[in-house]
């Protein structure tokens, strides 16, 4: 499903060059449930952004399915891949505050040109899946962190992606809520969607089937 070959990524800041990812080789099978761990600054988010085609890499190859993702991909194509194949979940939820839960969930479908009515219906369906159908008309600031994250997960799922990428999805939640959220991810993964979660917490990583440990831009173990 996901194949990384010798991925290198550096950030240049003025005269300094920061080599963040140092030749990563990673294979993730379809339907895998993976966590990425590592200390702060080890390059976890950078890796996840590359996987999500939000960022590009300097060297190596990244295959998503049988599509080579590289710089020849136009912005428009990248947008299409993000929209159709990838679902994002962030630590700080990143919901639009001026939209209701339902509208937030429906947004990816807007960029797929799905008709409005159908968008609303499907958004409600996906909210229902995370147990928030009754909260459809609420705005993010009227919801708890756990609820917001569940809305964000619905949003990531609505376009029926092949991969869910979550960057510290439980980082802003207490442990009880964290486990509830992880339950949802587990359910999602159960449907065959490849799920990749970046986390700091061992008990979260334990819930996944495979752990990738990053240290100084390289894979440990």
């Amino acid at each position: 499903m996901i194949r990384l070959k010798n991925i290198n990524k550096s950030y240049t800041m003025g005269a300094n060059k920061l080599h963040v990812l140092k030749g990563l080789d990673i294979n993730i099978d379809e339907g895998a449930f993976v966590s990425i761990m590592g200390s702060s600054g080890s390059g976890k988010s950078t890796l996840l952004n590359i996987l999500g085609i939000l960022d590009d890499y300097d060297e190596g190859e990244y295959w998503l399915g049988d599509q080579l993702i590289d710089k020849s991909l136009s912005e428009k194509q990248a947008a299409f891949f993000r929209n159709q194949h990838i679902g994002f979940v962030f630590q700080s939820f990143n919901l639009l505050n001026f939209k209701t839960a339902q509208e937030n969930v429906a947004l990816p479908l807007y960029y797929q040109k799905v008709p409005r009515k159908e968008r609303a219906a499907r958004a409600l369906e996906y909210l229902d899946m995370v147990g928030l159908a009754d909260w459809a008309g609420h705005y993010p600031n009227q919801m708890s962190g756990g609820q917001q994250q569940r809305v964000a997960i619905s949003r990531a799922l609505i376009s029926n992606p092949q991969v869910i990428l979550a960057d510290e999805p439980t980082g802003a939640l207490d442990s009880k809520t964290s486990h509830e959220v992880m339950e949802i991810f587990k359910k999602v993964n159960g449907q065959g969607i490849t799920t990749i979660i970046v986390t700091h917490e061992d008990d979260i990583a334990e819930l996944t089937n495979q752990v990738i440990r990053l240290k100084d831009g390289q894979i440990e173990n």
Partner: peptide
């Protein structure tokens, strides 16, 4: 900026 970033992550093209 944040909103635009979110929209882009969800699949908004630069043209849109």
């Amino acid at each position: 900026t944040k909103e635009i970033g979110i929209r882009k992550a969800l699949g908004a093209t630069p043209n849109s």
